[in-house]
Design a protein around this nucleic acid. Structure first.
Length: 136
DNA sequence: GCCAACGTTGGC
DNA sequence: GCCAACGTTGGC
C-alpha cells in the first residue's frame, strides 16, 4: 500500500468540511505532477491531510475510496480526481515546524516542494507522522 | 503584506 | 524550442 499527503488551504477546503461531507472528489488539481500522483493512488491507500497557509499542520488521515477518474470540474485539459473519505483526525496535529525538525521527515516533498498539492510519502515517513500525531 | 519559488504563457 | 515576463502559491 502506498502512502500520500494531500494539502488544502483550510479557507478553501478544510479537514472539518471533509469530515462533514464524507466522501468527496479531490478536485481542482491543475498540476501535472500532482495529477500523476493521484493516478498512482490505489483504493485503500491512506493520505495525510495538511492545512497550508493557515495552520500549516497535518490534521488528519483520509483514505482513497475511488481511484482516479476525469475531473468533472475541468472544462478543458486532461485532469483527474480521486475520491477521498476522512478516516480519523490526529490526536495531535503535526506542524510544519515539527516536520522540519524531524530527521525522518525533513526531506518530504511537502517541505521541499511546498506547492505540490498531492505528494507521496514512504512507509517510514508515514509511520513517523503517525507516531508524532499519536495515531495508529 | 511581502517575497521567493515554481509553473505557465507568449514572443521570437 | 528557448527564455523572459507574468501569475500563483505558500511560508514568513
Amino acid at each position: 500500500m502506498a502512502h500520500w499527503l494531500v494539502k488544502s488551504e483550510p479557507t478553501a477546503w478544510s479537514w472539518d468540511r471533509q469530515v462533514a461531507a464524507g466522501t468527496t472528489p479531490w478536485d481542482g488539481v491543475r498540476n501535472p505532477q500532482a495529477t500523476n500522483n493521484m493516478k498512482a493512488m490505489a483504493e485503500g491507500d491512506r493520505a495525510f491531510f495538511y492545512h497550508s497557509n493557515e495552520g500549516k499542520e497535518i490534521v488528519g488521515i483520509a483514505k482513497v475510496v475511488k481511484e482516479h477518474y476525469p475531473d468533472p470540474t475541468a472544462e478543458e485539459g486532461d485532469w483527474s480526481v480521486v475520491d477521498l473519505a476522512p478516516v480519523k483526525p490526529l490526536k495531535k496535529s503535526v506542524t510544519l515546524d515539527a516536520l522540519k525538525a524531524d530527521a525522518v521527515l525533513k526531506d518530504i516533498p511537502l517541505v521541499k516542494q511546498s506547492r505540490l498539492s498531492v505528494s507521496p510519502l514512504t512507509e517510514p515517513q508515514f509511520k513517523r507522522v503517525l507516531a508524532l500525531g499519536e495515531a495508529r
